[in-house]
């Protein structure tokens, strides 16, 4: 039985699934254009990611193992699923778990081929997950402490923005975004441009259509992370979008202002500055709500 509310939900879902990759691709195009301008050159057209996608989709299909292909679909599917869960205003932790499912799937894809660069890339991707996952979960805990629920719906139900209570956690998303977008200084597992020691890391053995699908998953993931950032200012959401775009711009800026670091530095930075400061932020909320200064 399809009630109007279910129909609306389906409509929103389809809309999200269609619009998200378009917006994500466009944002990546803007990223490339902006990066080019930061480097004093003209850069590709903003729709370049779509050209790349269509071209890759129509390349000859070659691969090393059949099993490596399954993981691509799971990777993309998990990214889409986590976005849908966000749109449905579901449980934050579940969204993050689903995102992690996609991440693990990609790692397994890298492992599934006996190729040095893809395997080392996978090992490093695991470290990247180790670096950003705690920050994401801490953010979810932050949401919970402020709203009293892990449901995203509770964030929207709350009138005042979360940013005031969780400023440091919001800022830690610069690190999360940097890692997720494979930007300097954290582009250690598979850089966008391949001038690194691992060729293209765990993407080395993927080509054509499968690379295109991974690229598309990347677009969904970008939108997902930006969506989560938007939650820090959910009412009105447009301010949240602005906030997320600001952080996105900041990440691009940092990408161009620093060298790539090694995995040890990455873990040190994310666990100390990212997770560590997030914990302080949470601790402050504990103390303040204990003192009765903020409701929690």
């Amino acid at each position: 039985m399809i009630t109007p509310s279910i129909a609306l939900e389906i409509l929103v879902t389809v809309f999200a699934l269609v619009v998200a990759p378009l917006a994500g691709g466009l944002l990546f195009g803007i990223d490339r254009k902006l990066t080019a301008r930061l480097q004093n050159r003209i850069g590709p057209p903003i729709v370049q990611p779509f050209y790349d996608f269509i071209k890759l989709w129509n390349k000859d299909q070659i691969f090393a193992n059949r099993s490596q292909l399954i993981y691509v679909y799971v990777h993309l599917g998990a990214a889409m699923a986590s976005l849908v869960l966000l749109v449905w205003q579901q449980d934050m932790l579940v969204i993050l778990f689903t995102l992690a499912l996609g991440g693990i799937s990609l790692v397994l894809g890298g492992f599934s081929v006996r190729s040095p660069y893809s395997q080392i890339g996978s090992q490093r991707e695991l470290l990247q997950m180790l670096a950003y996952e705690p920050m994401l979960v801490l953010a979810a805990v932050g949401f919970y402490l402020v709203t009293g629920s892990f449901l995203v719906a509770a964030v929207f139900a709350r009138g005042t923005p979360l940013l005031f209570e969780l400023p440091v956690i919001a800022l830690s998303f610069v690190l999360v975004l940097g890692i997720k977008l494979r930007k300097s200084p954290f582009d250690i597992a598979a850089a966008g441009h391949a001038h690194q020691e691992l060729v293209r890391g765990l993407l080395t053995e993927y080509s054509g259509r499968y690379l295109a699908l991974i690229e598309m998953a990347h677009w969904y993931e970008l939108l997902l992370v930006l969506g989560i950032i938007s939650l820090f200012w959910a009412n009105p959401l447009v301010v949240g979008f602005g906030l997320s775009l600001l952080l996105y711009f900041l990440v691009i800026l940092i990408d161009n202002a620093v060298a790539r670091l090694t995995w040890t530095s990455m873990l040190k930075i994310t666990w100390s500055w990212g997770a560590g400061l997030s914990v302080l932020n949470l601790a402050a909320i504990y103390v303040l709500s204990y003192l009765g200064w903020i409701g929690g």
Binding site: A36, N40, P44, A194, V199, R200, L203, S207
Partner: peptide, 19 residues
């Protein structure tokens, strides 16, 4: 590099034959 910037035409050096 900036002066010729072939990324204008969508060209990137991927360094991997499979790509």
């Amino acid at each position: 590099t900036p002066l010729y910037d072939v990324e204008r035409f969508g060209m990137i050096n991927v360094g991997n034959p499979k790509h």
